[in-house]
Design a protein around this nucleic acid. Structure first.
Lengths: 260, 260
DNA sequence: CGTGCCAGGTGCCCT
DNA sequence: AGGGCACTTGGCACG
């Protein structure tokens, strides 16, 4: 049985076939279209050649000729997708009741319509997230400082979750905010929020540490103002070995597993 | 001349044809593949039916059967895309020199390979951004408060740009932070930093106002702590008329323009 | 080119 | 269902 089928017919016939295949197969349309979106914002897209994907979960993605980000889209579960014909124009439209958002895509030319009977039960496995970095720092506290003793991961406060909490040898609380990327001013402010919480509410001496891949001059200046310590961590150079370790059993599947 | 062409052949022949078409046409592959990504993060994706898009600008998008977000991707300009064959397996691989990121996609089955000779010079037109909302509030200060007198848009401080600045009838400075969506704790704190800046540096009395589509209890509690005023704005109900006005000349094109 | 920041952000996990 | 937040965030505008 063929996995992909290329549909033929007039706009009306296509609309009919697509309505039947909807939610059963992935639908891909190559064509010339305009699109108009109205909801949280208004956007309109003049005519051009586009690639439309409609998945079985009713997520809709309209791609132009450039870039990773779609021109227009609709999330899964947002609302029903309708296929209809206005003369020779194939109309794909969605309506999201909750937010009263509408998306209308008008194909004045359809070059190719493909249905894809895809089966995929696999899930993407990821290692190297911020959470993994926090775990790593918990196990390697000397990276934060010579006298850092971690106590808690994911500590909740009314101001948010603290990535890593610990003490120094004097018993001072140390709050660590962990970022995988370069630090932003918002990161420094976020840490300030946590430190303020402990100083105001728990009436104790608190030191703030911001871990990141890099620090701009602006952020460094902020950290000096708040008397926080920046710690540069080259996470990309640290995690591969650990990643390979953690993922080895699954990676083994990956390299040895043959498709059914 | 046909806009879409479906290629045939062995993995080796496909790799050869795709190498030639690369950057000239959009390439779409329907197939069964695994993928492994190594860079800022490590990810691997077990076998499944997938849809691969490679655009002319060398942005690469690998879609699974669900969701708007791709499973794996590569940004335009990141690095060269290579097509090769390992036995009957079609291998699409990318290398991003700057971050030493690699993505390898192994198609053990190719159901269909389509090239799309797409032409698109149009750009997406949008109205309703946060900037538009700030403009609107500048023109309708009564929404902020009965005695709010706006003075400056996009006022720069060492802590960042202030969306809207003004005074009340007593001459107190009012700092307005504008968010189109529901307010987050970070938004409240961002405003706090601005207000602190003016009170510390300019030694004046400052009131803070946070404009957003909605406020959670947590954020409201924060605002009470800081003595800031929340203002709910139903931007979605305000902007359509303005949007239509601003976009009318282009919308006219949109509705009347026929495809070439 | 880096830095900062908005986005129709999306997705994930939590209550 | 709604909040809080990370993200290979992406993309843009600006110094």
């Amino acid at each position: 049985m063929k996995r992909t089928i290329n549909l033929k017919g007039t706009a009306k016939e296509l609309a009919q076939q697509l309505s039947e295949e909807s939610c059963k197969k992935t639908i891909v349309i190559f064509g010339f279209c305009k699109a108009i979106f109205d909801g949280r914002i208004k956007s309109f897209l003049p005519g051009g050649d586009r690639l439309l994907i409609v998945k079985k979960d009713e997520s809709l993605i309209l791609h132009g000729s450039k870039g990773v980000k779609p021109l227009n889209w609709q999330k899964s579960g947002a609302g029903k997708i309708n296929y209809s014909a206005k003369g020779s124009t194939l109309v794909v439209s969605t309506f999201r009741p909750k937010t009263k958002e509408t998306l209308e895509i008008l194909f004045t030319r359809v070059y190719q319509t493909t249905t894809f009977d895809d089966h995929d039960s696999a899930t993407l496995n990821i290692f190297g997230s911020e959470s993994d970095l926090s775990d790593y720092l918990f196990d390697h506290p000397e990276i934060i400082g010579p006298d850092f003793q971690p106590t808690t991961r994911e500590y909740e406060t009314p101001f948010g979750f603290i990535d890593l909490r610990g003490v120094d040898k004097h018993g001072n609380i140390i709050i660590v905010e962990v970022k995988k990327q370069s630090a932003t001013p918002a990161d420094a402010h976020q840490l300030k929020r946590y430190v303020d919480y402990f100083q105001d509410v728990e009436k104790v001496s608190v030191r703030g540490v911001l871990v990141a891949a890099g620090f701009s001059e602006k952020v460094l200046s902020l950290l000096r103002t708040y008397d926080f310590k920046p710690v540069v961590v080259f996470w990309q150079e640290i995690f591969p070995s650990k990643a390979t370790l953690n993922m080895s059993h699954t990676l083994d599947d990956f390299y040895n597993n043959n498709p059914k």
